[in-house]
Amino acid sequence: MIDTAPSIVLVIAVGAFVISGVYLMLERSLTRILLGFILLGNGVNLMFLIAAGRAGNAPLIGNGEESGWTDPLPQAMVLTAIVITLGLVGFVGAMAYRSWQLNGHDEVQDDLEDRRIARLAAKNAPAVFDVDTDTSDATPLDDQAAGVRDETEDDSEEETESRNGHGVDDAQRGGDQR
């Protein structure tokens, strides 16, 4: 039977790789994320070596006793995983470079549309403007409410105004149609 007790050096190495990999992956810059992914990937690849048990002879027929052989299957899997990781590293590297070309930095950015929706939600404004959200004074009811509630907050004034402007346009459109 194969001795499955792992080598302590490998265990510590996996721990170190994974810790630093996770730390780097939590950064915003794509290059650091890439480095983190490389470390994390290598840590997981070493885990396969642990899974293979204690190192032994090369698993070739005629090379000593079968019980002294290393398990070859994890090595095959690691090889595949390394190839995949290499390909992905190449792609992410290219993407980071492209991001730097376009924006002058390679940071993973937030989703602007999501932010916009969240701002609307915070103001309790309708996500979509429609004829039936307008009232007679050409201001959407929800916006009026938001305006009243937001009077105490200085920084949201500007936002409200631009929204009201939009509402006017919309009402005129509705009027034209009728």
Binding site: M25, G41, M47, I50, A51, L88, V92
Partner: peptide, 20 residues
Amino acid sequence: VVVALVSSVIFLTGLAVTYA
């Protein structure tokens, strides 16, 4: 890509643990 990479690493970890 970053999210997918994370899921791939988790999957690979799962594989290593399974084999071990």
